[in-house]
Each structure stands twice: as structure tokens, then as C-alpha cells.
Amino acid sequence: MRQKMAGVNECFSIGSIVVCRTCYNKDIEGEVLAFDPQTKMLILKCPASNGQPGLNDVHIINLSLVSDVQVKKEVNTVPEPPQSLDLYRLNNRVRNQIEEKRRLITALSAGVTPEGQKLFLAISKTIKEVCWQGSNIVVFDTVTITPPYKLDNVRGHAECKALTHIRKVVEKHVKEQAAAEAATSVAGSPTMPQ
């Protein structure tokens, strides 16, 4: 095991396993993810503190505040360059999340019931062309769902394919909500002695 003191301005190879003793006399062992020699910052990937497999803790360590650093396993191979971020996909995901929050705010400001909000969210998971017009849900600009947001409240042109599809979505949602409420009421009801 090679030992390095905190004040030494050496590089740490990505993928190496190191142990750092902090100023709190705590040892942190992990795999080097990154090292910046100018700021003496070391980023370590460690096993998850909650013990869950597949998860990791990430520690950012200021080597100026570390009393001891030991390299347990040195990696000398050049690691593969990290995959580039797909910023287009990331931006779309962020944009979609922002749009969903705006829709929810619009619904809340229109005084829409929780049932209406749940139905709106259920529809918007599969259909993006859904919006609020006051307290009404409008899908594909052709189908309107009015309060109290039940199957009888779905309106549109009879020959419209979207109407049939939306009616099925609403019917499924209403059944799921009824089943969830039934399960909640059964789980919450006290048991009667026999």
C-alpha cells in the first residue's frame, strides 16, 4: 500500500482505490472518480451508506483538510472517456417536466378538483395534446371532459376516433381510482371481533 500525505500535489488515477483520513478522524474509502490538483479536490465513489446494492455514495474531499491518504489499488490504465451527455434529451425532459408543472398550476388556479387533476395527469402520461380550458380537460382539441370527470362527462364528435380512445382512458382511470379507494377503505377499517 502506497501512502501519500495530504499536502503532496500528486495526481490520482481515475479508478484507483484510496482511503482518506478526514480531519474528523474518519476513514473514507472509495474509487477515484475525479481529482483536481489545483483545488486539491478528490471525488470518491463509495458503497451506499444505506447498504442498498446498485447505489453509491459520492464524497467530495478537500485534501487540504485530510491528515492521511493511502492508495490501496493503483490503476495505471487510461480509462475510457465518459459518455457525453445527451443535452438535447436532457433539455426535452426538463422542458416536459416544466410544462407538466405549468399545467398543474393552471389546474390549481382554475379550482379543479383533485379527481380532475388525477385524470388530467393520467391522460397526459400517454397523450401530450391535453390542456385545460377553465375546469374542462381538452384532448386533441376535439374531446372535452367536464366536471365531475366521469365517463358521462366525455364529449366530442361521435365519429371521432379520439373520442372512443379517450372514453376508454377515462373508463380505465375511473375503475383504477375506485379500486384504489376500495383498497384504502378496507385497509383503514377496523377489524370487528367475531
Rank of each mutant, 00 (worst) to 15 (best):
M5C: 03
D152K: 06
S49A: 06
K168M: 02
T39F: 04
F120G: 07
I166K: 10
E29L: 11
R89N: 14
E115G: 15
N9V: 06
N96Y: 15
V32K: 06
V32T: 10
D141R: 13
L119P: 02
P53I: 13
K4H: 13
M1L: 14
P114A: 01
V138R: 03
K101Y: 11
V112K: 09
I127S: 05
I127D: 10
I28Y: 03
S185T: 04
N96F: 14
K45G: 03
N136E: 15
K26Y: 08
E181P: 01
I17Y: 07
V69T: 12
V139T: 04
Q117N: 04
C11I: 09
Q97D: 12
V186P: 01
P37W: 05
K150E: 15
V66Q: 06
I105A: 09
R93K: 14
V8I: 13
P47T: 04
N9D: 08
Q177I: 09
D57T: 07
V139C: 08
I61E: 00
L65K: 09
S16Q: 06
H157C: 09
Q83I: 04
P190F: 00
P79I: 03
S67R: 10
S67Q: 09
E29I: 05
Q70V: 08
R95S: 15
F35G: 01
I14W: 09
K128S: 14
R2F: 13
L119G: 08
G116D: 12
R95P: 10
E159S: 14
P37E: 05
A107N: 05
R2S: 15
A158S: 05
P37N: 08
G134T: 08
I137F: 07
N76W: 08
Q194I: 09
P37C: 11
E80R: 05
G188D: 03
E100M: 15
N76S: 14
N91I: 02
G51S: 01
G51W: 02
V130F: 03
Q194H: 10
G30N: 07
N25K: 11
R93I: 12
L104Y: 12
R167E: 02
V174H: 01
L55H: 05
L85R: 10
S13V: 07
L90S: 13
D57C: 10
L44R: 02
S189F: 00
K168L: 03
I137Y: 06
S189M: 01
T184Y: 04
N136K: 14
